[in-house]
Design a protein around this nucleic acid. Structure first.
Lengths: 258, 258
DNA sequence: CGCGGTGTTGAAAATTGTCAATAATTGTGG
DNA sequence: CCACAATTATTGACAATTTTCAACACCGCG
């Protein structure tokens, strides 16, 4: 376990105002999440600029917020470690989880329009993010068109993601929603090198329910039904997908297919 | 009323292939929708560049698509006249209306990520849009930072809008959904100079239902209930809001307030 | 004038929500 | 390290909203 210890030292060094080498400080160029956060095919010179995008890292303890609704907006955040949820609240206190974000994904784009955040971003486990002040992002994208295009793509991807959540919320039944949730999460974890079939959920049934527009009891029951039918194994937060094709089939069945 | 007549002549001139002055062709600087489509506070010189953003206009007949899912992406579209719906489809044919767009609003941002459109944009009445090839938008925003910021804002605004639709779909009951729909549409129409209370819906009950995650019968019944309660007057597509405060109150009531 | 698409309304069915009780797990403090 | 409290998860019974199916009315257009 020497590597984590080194990482820890690096992090605590980050916090200190005086630093030896800027390259060591925060090196996107060496980051294993590069392919998720950054555009591909940058030149050396462009990388040098990009490395200056990230002005620091920030740790967020489980349960606390990276930012909240109405907080002033000044930066985008790239998740290094940990899982977040984003949520919006109605005036009467009801809230809606709008997404779960994992390493390599970007948080904060909701703040650009009004220079104020619209949602809360809460860590579901101890997490760390890279802070990218948005004025730097904007400035650098004026000269590095690969970065410009990347910013456009990341925002467009979020629009498309939300489109598909709207499809889920607007026209799927409980089983379909949960199947879509599990397949999507497994796919994103797998892209990051985790198991294709096993996962440990970092969110509660209530949070899953909020995201899927269901009550927590319905989520729990649907998990149980999937388990009974042999599609998955569930033990609290530990989920193993046994028959991904069956889950995919649930998604594609119109409601009147018995 | 000499201005409108001039505008009309301008429009018909646009249709002709041979044009005298490019400045006359498509003049964002003179467009009454400027405040919706474009950044505020541009210099003369910047306007000159912006006017070159729009390469042409395109008419879309009622019922036909401006673009469809899987169409190659190359432009954003600013709506001049008419109302559109956007919709996404599941593999089994079910579809979900993801939004209704009116004059001054921007279509096509879903296409940026994969250079292919993710949704369909269908005109609900005869419509006309300004075509803004995206590579021009990108290039010009590298030099005109007000435009760059505007593009970021428009995309962020769409992310925020979809967030609030997720809240609607995930945690509101039928009455709340319809109230939110009516208030939102009325507000957008009013910002464009239409009546605050009277409107003619361009979409069917089915389309409203799809957008709100409800069946068309539920939409119809909820309209009738609002009318019975004196909140609105409904006659087919003609709707008049009588007590906007009551509609707003419906939105803010938690479901267990009787 | 009639036809097709659209809208309204009723009755019954079904999915999901609500309430409640219990079990399992996690975190905390002694 | 154990025990207790608090949070989270599961399951059942019942209620409620919404969907489904069906019949009919309305409107606009050819």
């Amino acid at each position: 376990m020497s590597l984590p210890r080194a990482a820890l030292r690096l992090v605590s060094a980050d916090a200190a105002p005086a630093l030896r080498g800027a390259a060591l400080k925060i090196a996107c160029s060496n980051c294993s999440l590069r392919e998720f956060c950054l555009p591909a095919g940058l030149t050396e010179a462009e990388f040098a600029g990009i490395d200056k995008l990230v002005t620091g890292r920030r740790k967020v303890r489980r349960g606390s917020a990276l930012f909240c609704s109405n907080d002033p907006f000044h930066a985008l955040y790239a998740i290094r470690t940990g899982v977040f949820k984003t949520r919006v609240s109605a005036s009467d206190g009801r809230d809606q989880v709008t997404g779960f974000q994992i390493s390599g994904e970007i948080l904060g784009m909701d703040g650009i329009v009004n220079q104020v955040h619209y949602c809360d971003a809460v860590a579901l486990e101890d997490a760390e993010v890279c802070v990218m002040p948005f004025d730097r992002v904007a400035e650098l994208s004026r000269s590095v068109s690969a970065l410009q295009h990347h910013v456009h793509r990341v925002m467009s991807r979020e629009i498309v993601r939300e489109n598909s959540v709207m499809l889920l919320l607007g026209s799927m039944r409980a089983e379909e929603r949960l199947a879509a949730f599990l397949l999507n999460l497994a796919q994103r974890l797998h892209a990051r090198g985790f198991s294709r079939s096993e996962m440990v959920l970092r969110m509660t049934r209530q949070e899953i329910g909020s995201y899927l527009g269901l009550q927590l009891e319905t989520v729990s029951r649907t998990f149980s039904r999937f388990a009974e039918d042999g599609l998955i194994e569930v033990n609290q937060r530990k989920v193993r997908i046994l028959y991904p094709e069956a889950l995919r089939r649930i998604l594609q069945q119109p409601p009147d297919c018995l």
